[in-house]
Design a protein around this nucleic acid. Sequence first.
DNA 1: CTGTTAGCGCGTTCAC
DNA 2: GTGAACGCGCTAACAG
Lengths: 345, 345
Amino acid sequence: MVRKARSGTRGGANGDSGNVTLIDVARVAGVAPMTVSRALNRPELVRQATQKKVLDAVRATGYVPNMLAGGLASSRSRLVALLLPTIASSIFADTVQALMDELTDAGYQTLIGLTGYSVSREEALVEALLGRRPDAIVLAGTDHSAATVARLEQARIPVVEIWDLTDRPIDMVVGFSHEQVGQAVARHLMRKGYRRFAAVSVDDPRGLRRCKSLRAELAANGLLECPLEVLPAPATLAAGRQGLAKLLETLRPEVVVCSSDTLAEGALMEAASRDLRVPEDLAVMGFGDLSMAAQLHPALSTVKVGGAEIGRRTAQALLARFEPGANDTPVRIDTGFTIIDRDSA
Amino acid sequence: MVRKARSGTRGGANGDSGNVTLIDVARVAGVAPMTVSRALNRPELVRQATQKKVLDAVRATGYVPNMLAGGLASSRSRLVALLLPTIASSIFADTVQALMDELTDAGYQTLIGLTGYSVSREEALVEALLGRRPDAIVLAGTDHSAATVARLEQARIPVVEIWDLTDRPIDMVVGFSHEQVGQAVARHLMRKGYRRFAAVSVDDPRGLRRCKSLRAELAANGLLECPLEVLPAPATLAAGRQGLAKLLETLRPEVVVCSSDTLAEGALMEAASRDLRVPEDLAVMGFGDLSMAAQLHPALSTVKVGGAEIGRRTAQALLARFEPGANDTPVRIDTGFTIIDRDSA
DNA sequence: CTGTTAGCGCGTTCAC
DNA sequence: GTGAACGCGCTAACAG
């Protein structure tokens, strides 16, 4: 008696049947339990007439297959574990949506864990999630503790690291190079004639790597100065405002590179509040093409990344591996990025 | 052989142990399987020395408890299912984060389903998710198909409807009244002297209800005109711009009420691009206090709702019900809302 | 095409 | 405090 059952609702066929099992269905349908299982999971192996009897019995009883039992018996849970830093940073929203959509359509469900950018939390979550015996695990990023990597390898299931690229993946990778982004942004802006750079990033490994790469490329071209303001995650408009405000206390940069569009929008607000014209007085560069930021702020440039594509291709790679005779072809997909320059300066 | 095991990594203690079971641990520890189970789940029932032997064996073997088996045997999956319209609309982000944080700390995991505001998709998802035998199910909103309600009731687990309030809940409700929001916004703005209203909403049941209630309250005060522009979900900045643009084609409202802060921000952009002063030429009202919108745009007013509170209190209510001797005290929590007026007009 | 047998890995229940 | 039997609901592997 877990909860108070609300009395007589919807005069359904069945009484209360919280525990209808396959056997009950089999009894009602007048077939063996195994036949019910087949009718539900591999209909092509069952005669039309039998199939119908079973489906009728399923409806009559209100049967819902117990996937705990099914997973235990078959060693296939039809569960995919997904580890993300946070749900707040909508930078992953497209990816999650695309990934879940494809997996759901294929009959898989998604178990989500939020790491909060903490390696130790990720470690605990990986262990907990593996307890569900997922058929695959997807994690954002490529930085994991040794213990996490060991667990992942010993789990013997497909592992996909997304939103990044590495030469030494645990298994599969679908993403793009944050080093390349930083470098490309640096080159792009230098080509446009900017010399005085500044950067704002939240304390997120990939954002910081983009900034690091940006600064390295600038330095390689003689631009040794590029102050970086780092703020605690997650990226918010307020953080963006604050980050730029801090920088402007001591500097007069020509361009500020932000580690996300949310920060960039915050920076735009701060600029507006100081009556700085964008991009004439200060150019702003974002990242992510969140909410089509560049389209909305004609003066904002940004880096567009294929968030949905990452999700879609990850799902496809996994579904391929789930296929009966699948082999373990290495998967390494570079989804790339595009610099969107709306700055007509 | 699901995937290619990368050769020698991390000279860990154990070989590859994808299938270590409780029995293996018991053997290594030199105790009965049952003792291992107890040591792991109810340590207080086991002697210190035994406990240590077991934990050592767990570490040595790399054992990860199989929760499919555990759930099947105990009829407690330690899983909570969560149904949301979409992950893109970050209006739920705080709620999800708070809910998952609390549940994770208590040893529960979250299974998420995305309905895309579709009742039929919700129906399919509810059935699929119930197959995992979750210990509870949380759904956004109170509008469900009859079939969904029937399934939910027959599942005999706690059901929480969140982000809304209703007199006839399936089980528990944690949220606030969207009718009250609409009414309160109408009164607030009328009190400030506004007479020419317009509204923009995405096609989301709760947003539409807020608008409907707003218009009803206006009408009750003689303001029969309040054009409403409805856009397809999800709410984006672009939608906000477009919505306002559409309205301005034929009207000159004093204030535009938006069904979310994202839309409101889009409307602010559109206003800016037309050199409309906010709030002098056009006041903008949002909803959600997303990204502390009101704080960032001093001219934007909004309705602040306790997204995180909803998540937290939902988790607490559930955990209370999971408690051994818990009863089914009805839970109906109104988390309320606050109108934030930054409009100094 | 359908039925039978034998577990999947664990927790519950009862002995000791 | 610890152990032994049994079953949770389902599917794999075979038999027919």
